[in-house]
């Protein structure tokens, strides 16, 4: 039997903006010593529509995702303690406010100063497992993909029932990072058997598909049809570009595989199962979701 690799294989992000140079998503990935981080943030274009002359006419949403991403980077490089991430995020927002134009005349609960979501995973390989911590606020998500399928690790800060209903109910977020109101950065420690793939994603990646099953299919089908990692990244970009109606950002950490062939091998059987059971079926999608969600929701 082949010895399991106990290392982080690769870490990367794929992203695209709908309007060139005005995309409101942001990402970060890094490795320091044995610790890695993947992050995806989505500045909220509705509530953060205010444009700031002091920020070259960019919107609060555009500034927020970048500033908070910078705060996350500083935190990872300087501290990396769970309890201190909110402090770094608040500091980033405070700098945004400090240099912003004076408050505008528009009032009301729909507008917020510098609103953004964030989904972050930090992790460390430990023998044949990955010790990870998820941090999140808003509707961006952390996922783990293993041979049993895709697992959503973080509960959306939306008033919808689950990942399926959130695709159509399009609710207002119940918690989002911003400089106007209080918010919470949730965190959750988890341990996964390696090999596996960890992902953080903004809603542009998964929110324009028919069902959560299709997001897993998008990930694994593009993977098993690629010749190498570079091709997989291109295919991920192409597939999300085809279906999305928003900026999208997907950050990926591949853990514990020996080579690309082994990554593909790990997901081939599962991809065939998902294709046959969910994708090539004409059964009511909600009925299929009821079956699929048992495994998908294991960590929620």
């Amino acid at each position: 039997m082949k010895k399991a690799n106990q290392e982080l294989n690769s870490i990367f992000s794929v992203a695209e903006e709908m309007v060139k140079n005005n995309g409101e998503d942001c990402f970060y990935y890094d490795v320091i010593d044995n610790n890695f981080i993947i992050a995806a943030l989505d500045g909220c274009g509705g509530s953060g529509s205010k444009k700031y002359e002091n920020y070259s006419g960019k919107t609060g949403a555009y500034i927020a995702s970048r500033a908070v991403c910078g705060g996350i980077k500083s935190w990872f490089c300087e501290s990396n303690k769970d309890s201190e991430l909110p402090k770094y995020i608040h500091e980033a927002l405070s700098v945004c406010k400090q240099h912003a134009d004076k408050a505008g005349r528009i009032m009301g609960s729909l507008g917020k100063a510098f609103p953004t979501t964030a989904s972050v995973i930090t992790g460390k390989m430990d023998g044949n497992k990955v010790d990870a911590t998820c941090y999140w606020a808003g509707d961006s998500r952390c996922y783990m993909l293993d041979a049993n399928g895709l697992h959503q690790l973080t509960a959306d800060d939306l008033d919808g029932q689950d990942a399926m209903s959130n695709l159509s109910n399009d609710g207002v977020m119940t918690n989002v990072i911003n400089a106007s109101t209080s918010f919470e950065v949730h965190n959750k420690k988890l341990s996964f058997k390696s090999p596996c793939i960890l992902l953080t994603a903004t809603d542009g990646c998964f929110g324009y598909l028919n069902s959560p099953m299709e997001f897993e299919y998008l990930l694994t089908d593009s993977l098993i049809k690629a010749k190498n990692l570079h091709e997989w990244k291109i295919a991920l970009n192409e597939r999300m570009h085809d279906v999305t109606g928003d900026d999208y950002t997907l950050s990926v950490a591949i853990c514990g595989f020996n080579d690309f062939g082994e990554i593909q091998g790990n997901y081939k059987k599962r991809n065939a199962y998902v294709t046959d059971t969910y994708i090539n079926q004409t059964t009511d999608v909600n009925a299929m979701w009821e079956i699929y969600k048992k495994e998908y929701s294991t960590y929620l």
Binding site: G45, G46, T59, R105
Partner: peptide, 15 residues
């Protein structure tokens, strides 16, 4: 104009 644009964008982008 800038305020009108903000209002339209808030309504449209939150759609």
């Amino acid at each position: 104009n800038l305020e009108y644009e903000e209002i339209i964008n808030t309504i449209s982008n939150s759609i």
